[in-house]
Amino acid sequence: MFAQFFGSFLLHKGLVTAQDLTVAFEEKKNTRMRLGVLAINAGLMTSEQVEHVNVTQQSVDKRFGDLCVELGYLTDNDVERLLSEQPTDYLLLGQTLVNSGVMSNADFEAAIKEYKEENSLSNDDISGNQSDKLSKLISGFYHFDTAANARIYTEYTTLLFKDIIRFIGDDFTPLGSSIIHELEAPHIVKQAITGAYNSITCVAADTAEYMAFAERFAKEEFTEVDDFVDATVGEFMNVNNGLFTVNESNEHGIELQLDPQEIHNHDKIVFENPAFLIPVSFSFGEVNFVISNG
């Protein structure tokens, strides 16, 4: 999931466009990691050194790794270790953006350094997809620490993104959140979580995006929004919220229930308590998620 937030960081910094990210998320499936990007990420080489090796490689018939050792930038052990590590998702995204010319190696080096510093992340944190670091990243990204129930918002959103990756796809970019008091959209699915505390959760989107989201979850094609499409989006929400209640029960001893989902087409929902609007930009368009706790 670090790849999606790294993509959002690049977008926010103006280093890439939303279109660049859409293309890169699609292309990264076929991207092979290059030693230069791995070495930059590990802090073993600078982008200038990588460029130097790239230029040198044009005039000699030698492998990139061998040249790095010959030029004194890496040891044999460094090369072996870097090549043996599994490429992480955010590195594949970075490599894809470098390959397509959207970013240079120097842009990537500066961006990855700033991203890690801003979020206090080490290489181990990112490659291990550690839950606590992920929660910290999400809480910081959405400024949940300003909310009274920061833990609930953070854990709900962390699970939501895991379920989006699991059931919809990983080709999305989280966009900045906002606080809302009402929600108006062509299609809204709402589900209340009740019990030890009460929350309202929603998925909202325009027609084309709503259908595309449903198509991904159902793994079938739709031509119009009908009851089945509503039920499909409703089931995504039900599964996600169900897993959330299981986590709350198992990890915190908090017992919650789910109300049946409500479908609101071309409607407006007014929240009793302030709600976090969490927009997510997919390759097929934008879908909004809402959580209000109180």
Partner: peptide
Amino acid sequence: ASSVGTQN
């Protein structure tokens, strides 16, 4: 068969 598989 439920999405809410809590102990309760």
